[in-house]
Simulated scan of single mutants.
Amino acid sequence: MKTLSFLLLFIGITAFAPPPEVKLTTTKLASGLSVGVPATFTPLPDDGIAVKYPSPRKPLAVFTNPSGRVDFSVAVRPTTFESMDYAVLLKIYKASIQRLYSKVEFLKEDIRTVKGRDFIYFEFVSTVSDGGRTSQLAPIKKYQTVQYAIQGQQMYVFTFVAPANEQAQWQPTAQAVMNAIALK
């Protein structure tokens, strides 16, 4: 009985312990832009970016975990919007995210401040499914955090993507990465 009581006390105390610290390495990507990248992630080379992210405008940088299943990417695009437009952009980008996927479950959406700079922030689980009647493909579900910031005439897009079934494992890392962005 004493062992059971001790075990229950131990479980009760550790349940309220803070999550383990996420180890990030500060990486400078451009003048005035540095990000925190998980220590185990490596930069994806240009040919790897071209295969994984085929687009006329390749991301500024992509970092991936050892298995290649989890990515953190940074993209830069021209914009005519200004930071005072964030409230409108929040609605526009939310609608855009909803159109990209078959289903989206938003966990968080807001305008928040990180290191003195405002960002548009989304955290969600996306599902892509083949709507064909004869399709036997399983839906693809991803856990994602996306943060947008405007600097001058540029829109910076920071994206962390992991398999949805690994959300509990990667959520603290994704949040730490988004909180480590320094854009001056």
Rank of each mutant, 00 (worst) to 15 (best):
Lys94Tyr: 00
Ile97Asp: 06
Ile111Lys: 02
Ile140Cys: 07
Gly132Val: 04
Val114Lys: 06
Thr113Ala: 04
Gly116Asn: 06
Glu123Ile: 05
Arg99His: 14
Thr127His: 04
Ser126Phe: 03
Phe106Asn: 06
Glu109Val: 00
Val146Tyr: 01
Lys108His: 14
Asp110Cys: 06
Ala138Gln: 14
Lys94Asn: 12
Lys103Tyr: 05
Pro139Tyr: 06
Gln153Gly: 15
Leu100Gln: 08
Phe119Tyr: 15
Ile111Tyr: 05
Ala95Lys: 13
Asp110Glu: 13
Ile111Glu: 09
Ser126His: 03
Thr113Asp: 12
Gln98Arg: 09
Arg99Leu: 07
Glu123Pro: 02
Gln147Gly: 12
Val125Ile: 14
Asp118Leu: 07
Gly131Thr: 15
Met155His: 02
Lys141Cys: 13
Ile120Asp: 00
Asp130Arg: 04
Val146Glu: 00
Lys141Tyr: 02
Gln144Ser: 07
Arg117Pro: 05
Ile150Arg: 00
Arg112Met: 11
Lys142Gly: 03
Met155Ser: 03
Tyr148Leu: 09
Glu105Met: 10
Val104Glu: 07
Leu100Cys: 14
Gln144Lys: 10
Gln144Arg: 01
Val146Thr: 12
Ser96Phe: 02
Tyr148Trp: 08
Arg112Phe: 04
Gln147Ser: 15
Arg133Tyr: 15
Thr127Phe: 09
Lys108Gly: 05
Gly116Leu: 05
Gln154Pro: 00
Phe119Arg: 06
